[in-house]
Design a protein around this nucleic acid. Structure first.
Lengths: 191, 191
DNA sequence: CATTTAGTATACAGATCGGTATACTAAATG
DNA sequence: CATTTAGTATACCGATCTGTATACTAAATG
C-alpha cells in the first residue's frame, strides 16, 4: 500500500534515531531499522541512498530538539545565572541514572565513526556544538557576565567532560563537581 | 618455529594496541591484528581466548604509559602548580594537531562498546581515570591547594571535556580555554 | 623417549553486514 | 489512459566478522 511519502520517510528516520541512540550507529544495521519502521529494506533505500546519509539525517534531526532541551534545562530555573547553569549540570546527573542515557549523540557518533574521516558527520556535530556555545555566550552576556565567549566555551568543555565522566563512572557526584566548577568560573566574571 | 611465548604474546598485544587506537576497537578485526603481528590467527587465539580479552589486555596495557605521560606533561614544567596544569592542557592542544591523535583510549573504547554492557572494559577505564584523579589530588594537596579532591575531579572533567571538543572541532583554542578554566579553579583555592 | 607446548598453514563454518535484483501492486498525476 | 512514484515480498550478492577444524612441525620438558 502507499501512504504519504513524507510520513513513511519520517517513520524510518524515527526508528533509525531510536536505534542509533540506543545501540550506537555502528551496532545497528539497516535490516533492523527497516523492521522497526515496518518497511522493507527496498523502501528504506528508496528514501535514503545509503546508511551514511541516514546517519547524517539522524544527527541533523537531533540538532533542534537537543538544543531545545539543553536551553530549557537552563531557562526553567527562575533564579540567578549561576543557579540556572547549576540546573543544567544537575539535569545531566539525573539523566545519567537511567540506563537508557548514553550522553551526547553527536560526540558519540563522531567517536564511533572516527576511522573514516567522515567530514559530513563531524561537521554536523561541530555545527550543533557551536550553536549551543553561541546561545550560552548570548545568555551569559545578557546576564552581565564578563568575557561571555570564553566562559561559554569553558562551560561547553565542562558539559562534555561531565558527560564523559558520568558515562564511565555512573556516579552523579561528577555532575555536582562540574556544577561547582561552572559556578566558580561564572562568579569570577560577574561585574 | 617456536619463539619465546611471552615475546609472541607481546608482539600480538603491541600490534593490537597500535591498530585499536588508530582505527578503533570495533573497526579492527582479529585477522588484521594477526597479520600485523605476523602470526596466524590460530596462534592469536592460543594466547587470547577471544577478542574481548584482547581488548581488555590492550586497555590494561595502556594504563601505566598513559598515566606516566600525563604526569610527565605536568611535572616537566618547573613552575607553579598553575603553570604545570596549564602545561597539561597545552600538551593536548599540540597532540590534537596530529591526525594520529584520537583522544583518550579508555573513553573511546567505552564509547565504542556501550551497546554491550561490558563491565570488564568500563571498569578498567574507571580504574584508570580514578588513578589519575587520585594522583592529581595528591599533587594539588602537596602544593597547598584547598579541597584537592574536588579540584582534582574538576580537572578530570576539564581534561575529558577538552578532549571531546578538540576531537570535534580540531581547534586548539579549546585547549587554551580549558587551561584558563583550570588555572582559575586552582587560583580560587590557594591559601 | 614421550608428552606437552608453541607455532605454521589453510580452510571453513555460521553469522551479519550494506546494498541490489526481480517481480509485483496500487495510488497519484499529467 | 499512460506514466511515474511508493510500496510489498523475497531472495540474493559479495564482503567481512569471530571463532574453529584439520593436519603438521619443532622445541622444551619431565
Amino acid at each position: 500500500m502507499r501512504g504519504k511519502p513524507e510520513e513513511t520517510k519520517r517513520r524510518i528516520l524515527t526508528a533509525a534515531s531510536k536505534l542509533f541512540y540506543a545501540k550506537g550507529v555502528r551496532a545497528v544495521g539497516v535490516d533492523l531499522i527497516a523492521a522497526e519502521a515496518e518497511v522493507t529494506k527496498r523502501t528504506l533505500y528508496h528514501h535514503f541512498d545509503c546508511k551514511d546519509t541516514l546517519v547524517a539525517a539522524y544527527l541533523e534531526a537531533q540538532n533542534e530538539p537537543v538544543l531545545a532541551a539543553l536551553i530549557k534545562s537552563i531557562t526553567r530555573v527562575s533564579g540567578s545565572i549561576t543557579d540556572q547553569i547549576e540546573g543544567l549540570f544537575l539535569t545531566f546527573g539525573k539523566q545519567a541514572e537511567s540506563s537508557r542515557w548514553h550522553g551526547c549523540p553527536f560526540a558519540r557518533a563522531v567517536s564511533e565513526l572516527r576511522e573514516f574521516e567522515n567530514d559530513a558527520i563531524s561537521s554536523i556535530a561541530a555545527k550543533h556544538k557551536r550553536s549551543f556555545e553561541e546561545w550560552l555566550s548570548c545568555h551569559l552576556s545578557s546576564n552581565e557576565v564578563d568575557e561571555p565567549e570564553l566562559v561559554a566555551r569553558q562551560l561547553m568543555i565542562l558539559v562534555d567532560g561531565a558527560i564523559t565522566q558520568l558515562l564511565i563512572h555512573r556516579d552523579p557526584s561528577y555532575a555536582k563537581a562540574a556544577a561547582c566548577a561552572a559556578v566558580a568560573l561564572i562568579r569570577g566574571r560577574v561585574t
